[in-house]
Amino acid sequence: MDLENQKRVKDLTEEYGPENVVVLLGAAEGEASGIAAETVTAGDPTYAGPLTGVSLGLVVYHVCEDEVKEEFDPDVYDEQVSMMEMVLDIDEIAEEMQAIREEYTKY
């Protein structure tokens, strides 16, 4: 994850409290989703950014996962995202996200 974005995630989590923060991702692939999710839960796996060694344990979903999708206004989702379901490998992404959440999410 971009170093500046890591810094913002860290600062905002401190400001609002980790239990109140949810991260939503839009990554193009399973692996990239997994790395981003790991960054905001266990810490930056690339050892490059401000979240290196910082385990925030945040709740994190990919925008195309069913759990969050059913909370969106269906019209908004249809207009903004739905076409990408034909493009992205949603199953692979969901699998990666699920694994990271089970292991590292604390809230």
Binding site: M1, N5, R8, V9, L12, Y16, N20, V21, V22, V23, L24, L25, G26, A27, A28, E29, A32, A36, V40, L58, V63, C64, Q80, V81, M84, L88
Partner: peptide, 17 residues
């Protein structure tokens, strides 16, 4: 909740999420 959005130019961009 307070939501942080990390979109992807080649996936779903931030504002859409």
């Amino acid at each position: 909740k307070k939501v942080i959005v990390i979109g992807d130019r080649d996936g779903i961009p931030g504002p859409a999420i």
